[in-house]
């Protein structure tokens, strides 16, 4: 027992102060992209050709964060330095269209739930996580929110073991054909009113597997209405938490 207490003393209190202060993100962290308006050379399509998931459209330049894997192929390909990824971790959006960004668009942060949903779920949100054909990357970064460093419970959010105990689902992965029925049954088992949060590029639009016939192209494409989209491959835990807290109106 004395050893446990000594360890506790040595390791100290490690739950981060977020959201009072932001934890330091690594210099190479790739968050919300930024664009240099009007800097594209006429007829240049380097970024579009380089993007492995077809997330970029031209005239005007638009990057779909729902498809983006944050791999920097576009940044490397651009001869004029039009695109760059910033350290801004706030990527979550309520509407799929809000994820499409480009020069001149205004970044839209995820809006809070409506009054009635906030009354029911605002102080206690229980979520069931369903992994549906991803690579376990998003699951890793969702799971980490439960550790003492992030301590998700202090925000009234908790992961639960049964959909019947849940107020909503977190879906990771592109929803494989083999998981479609299980996802639907899990969704049906959550009592109303319920939320669905799509975490990661796969769950939003199929991610790196978007061309594969073995998957359905994400939660929405699989027929599950999505209330919050959290882009990334995988999203940083801070990006996921930011989305959850904005949904519950716990961030300014």
């Amino acid at each position: 027992m004395i050893h446990i207490l000594l360890s506790r003393w040595r390791q100290g209190h490690r739950t981060m102060a977020y959201p009072k202060t932001l934890p330091a993100l690594p210099e190479r962290f790739r968050g919300r992209p930024e664009f240099d308006p009007g800097a594209c050379a006429e007829g240049c399509r380097a970024c579009r050709d380089a993007c492995p998931t077809g997330a970029i459209e031209l005239a005007p330049l638009r990057l779909d964060l729902g498809r983006c894997l944050f791999c920097t192929e576009c940044v490397d390909a651009c001869p004029d330095g039009v695109l760059r990824f910033t350290g801004d971790h706030r990527l979550a959006a309520r509407n799929r269209d809000d994820l499409v960004q480009g020069p001149g668009t205004t970044p839209v942060l995820a809006a809070a739930l409506g009054k009635e949903l906030m009354r029911v779920l605002g102080r206690s949100l229980k979520l069931r996580v369903v992994s549906a054909g991803g690579c376990n990357g998003c699951e890793v970064d969702v799971n980490v929110l439960g550790t003492l460093a992030w301590d998700l419970g202090r925000f009234g959010i908790q992961f639960v073991a049964s959909p019947r105990h849940a107020d909503g689902l977190i879906i990771c992965g592109p929803v494989t054909a083999n998981m479609a029925l299980a996802v639907q049954k899990t969704y049906d088992a959550v009592p109303d009113p319920k939320l669905v949060i799509a975490v990661g590029a796969c769950a939003i639009a199929g991610g790196p597997y978007l061309h594969q016939a073995e998957q359905l192209g994400g939660a929405a494409a699989a027929g599950i209405p999505v209330d919050l989209f959290i882009p990334g491959c995988p999203p940083h835990p801070l990006t996921i938490l930011d989305g959850l807290l904005r949904l519950l109106d716990k961030l300014q």
């Binding site: 380089a50 192929e73 376990n136």
Partner: peptide, 13 residues
Amino acid sequence: PLSLKHAETACGD
């Protein structure tokens, strides 16, 4: 173009 990503996500951890 996606092959390296497929390798990276064959087992994402």
